[in-house]
Computed example of a mutant assay.
Amino acid sequence: MTNLYLVRHAHSVYSPDERNRTLSERGQQDAARVTELLEPEHIHVLVSSPYKRAIQTIEGLADRIGSGIIIEEDFRERLLSEQPVDDFEQAITKVWEDASFAWEGGESNQAVQFRGVQALKRVLEQYRGNNIAIGTHGNIMVLIMNHFDPRLDFTFWRQLDMPDIYKLSFSDQDLAEVQRIWNRPSPSAW
């Protein structure tokens, strides 16, 4: 079995610079929790989107296990539109309703899913039999998961936490099991 731990990044400070957005204070605390949850999973390989918030979410684990992080461009978040959208809810709903639709300069769900699944298959092939943590983003993460299980859809995406962790267990390239690893601690645990 090959186990992939898809890690949606923790909360970040908004900036129009998608690649260099950093984690917020809350995001940094949650990233420490990600490290605590993943350390007992015996992760062998860390891969991440090139976006800073995804890297920062798993870099504590990299430090803890003494491993570098492999950057995979194709795990980056979808480009919704070339220009900022006026109504995010309407814009994101439209691309989920019509998988082939793309806003001007943006990516359709089909394009994002294809890109993400191809990257995932490369990771499965290259690191077969290992436990791999992948720092990524909500939309692409769910689109990848949706490729293997259509029940994991827009409604599922809307219920994700930030961060969130799902363990996908594969036998070769066949998905055998999905398990949620993330559990937000109660406020009194902070």
Score class of each variant (00 low, 15 high):
residue 136 T to F: 01
residue 68 G to M: 04
residue 171 S to H: 11
residue 47 V to S: 04
residue 136 T to H: 04
residue 53 R to Y: 05
residue 73 E to A: 10
residue 106 G to D: 06
residue 9 H to G: 08
residue 190 W to P: 00
residue 108 S to N: 14
residue 96 W to Q: 04
residue 166 Y to N: 12
residue 50 P to R: 03
residue 38 L to H: 12
residue 56 Q to Y: 06
residue 130 N to T: 07
residue 81 S to Y: 06
residue 68 G to L: 13
residue 139 N to V: 06
residue 106 G to W: 04
residue 70 I to V: 13
residue 165 I to E: 13
residue 168 L to K: 03
residue 129 G to P: 03
residue 130 N to Q: 14
residue 60 G to H: 13
residue 120 L to Q: 11
residue 49 S to K: 02
residue 138 G to L: 04
residue 97 E to F: 00
residue 47 V to E: 02
residue 39 E to D: 09
residue 1 M to P: 13
residue 186 S to H: 15
residue 101 F to R: 02
residue 118 Q to L: 10
residue 114 F to P: 03
residue 144 I to P: 07
residue 180 R to G: 12
residue 14 Y to I: 04
residue 137 H to P: 11
residue 65 I to S: 10
residue 43 I to D: 06
residue 68 G to F: 09
residue 20 N to G: 10
residue 100 S to V: 11
residue 14 Y to N: 11
residue 41 E to F: 01
residue 78 R to I: 09
residue 141 M to C: 15
residue 142 V to T: 15
residue 138 G to V: 01
residue 28 Q to S: 15
residue 129 G to R: 05
residue 183 N to G: 10
residue 149 D to V: 03
residue 84 P to K: 02
residue 163 P to C: 07
residue 172 D to P: 00
residue 40 P to D: 14
residue 105 G to I: 12
residue 41 E to G: 08
residue 10 A to Y: 00
residue 117 V to T: 15
residue 87 D to H: 12
residue 187 P to I: 03
residue 131 N to F: 01
residue 37 L to C: 08
residue 37 L to M: 14
residue 132 I to H: 02
residue 126 Q to K: 14
residue 67 S to C: 12
residue 35 T to N: 13
residue 116 G to V: 06
residue 166 Y to K: 06
residue 37 L to P: 05
residue 108 S to W: 06
residue 103 W to R: 03
residue 48 S to W: 00
residue 173 Q to C: 04
residue 74 D to I: 01
residue 143 L to N: 02
residue 106 G to N: 09
residue 157 W to F: 10
residue 189 A to H: 12
residue 86 D to L: 11
residue 117 V to K: 05
residue 39 E to N: 08
residue 87 D to A: 12
residue 10 A to D: 07
residue 25 E to A: 14
residue 124 L to P: 13
residue 83 Q to C: 10
residue 37 L to F: 06
residue 95 V to D: 05
residue 130 N to K: 14
residue 65 I to D: 02
residue 12 S to Y: 06
residue 61 L to D: 07
residue 75 F to C: 02
residue 128 R to F: 12
residue 53 R to S: 08
residue 143 L to G: 08
residue 36 E to I: 00
residue 161 D to C: 08
residue 20 N to Y: 00
residue 7 V to Q: 02
residue 34 V to K: 01
residue 117 V to C: 12
residue 185 P to C: 07
residue 159 Q to P: 00
residue 185 P to F: 04
residue 10 A to C: 10
residue 23 L to M: 05
residue 69 I to H: 02
residue 69 I to K: 00
residue 148 F to S: 06
residue 2 T to I: 09
residue 157 W to N: 11
residue 74 D to K: 07
residue 29 Q to E: 15
residue 70 I to D: 11
residue 9 H to K: 08
residue 57 T to Q: 10
residue 76 R to C: 06
residue 122 R to T: 15
residue 17 D to T: 03
residue 97 E to Q: 15
residue 135 G to E: 09
residue 114 F to C: 15
residue 185 P to M: 11
residue 176 A to Y: 05
residue 8 R to I: 09
residue 182 W to I: 08
residue 51 Y to K: 02
residue 116 G to S: 13
residue 34 V to R: 01
residue 46 L to R: 03
residue 12 S to I: 03
residue 114 F to Y: 10
residue 82 E to H: 07
residue 33 R to Y: 10
residue 159 Q to Y: 01
residue 93 T to E: 14
